[in-house]
């Protein structure tokens, strides 16, 4: 199988996704976790972009592209909600981590 640009995109997406997953598990700070989830989400969007162009002569597959377009906007909204949650937690308890992370001490 030739190494097309779509495959490079897909493999990049896999690496970026796993980097995000590592960040999500390895770091306790909530802002770091939220950023890690965003990195994972971006990797999924990139993968969908690559999938949309596989073995396709006439342009791109519109179905994955449509999912990415709405997904990006929803991801931004969900990130704003997550950041507000993290800030509220900090305002109420002074902590920037979840209680489960603190007990791991």
């Amino acid at each position: 199988m030739p190494l097309t640009s779509e495959i490079v995109f897909a493999l990049t997406a896999v690496i970026v996704f796993c980097l995000g997953l590592y960040g999500l598990i390895a770091y306790a700070h909530l802002v770091r976790k939220i950023m890690a989830i965003n990195v994972m989400g971006s990797a999924v969007f990139l993968f969908f972009g690559a999938i949309a162009r596989r073995n396709f002569e006439e342009g791109s597959d519109p179905v994955p592209q449509a999912m990415v377009i709405t997904g990006i906007v929803v991801a931004v909204a969900a990130t704003a909600f997550a950041l507000t949650l993290a800030r509220r937690l900090h305002a109420e308890t002074g902590q920037t981590q979840l209680p489960e992370e603190q007990s791991r001490r």
């Binding site: 199988m1 097309t4 779509e6 495959i7 897909a10 493999l11 997406a13 896999v14 996704f17 796993c18 993968f47 690559a50 999938i51 596989r54 073995n55 396709f56 597959d61």
Partner: peptide, 13 residues
Amino acid sequence: LALVAVDLMDREP
């Protein structure tokens, strides 16, 4: 996941 991705990219849409 790389193995899965390469396999997926090879299939017909």
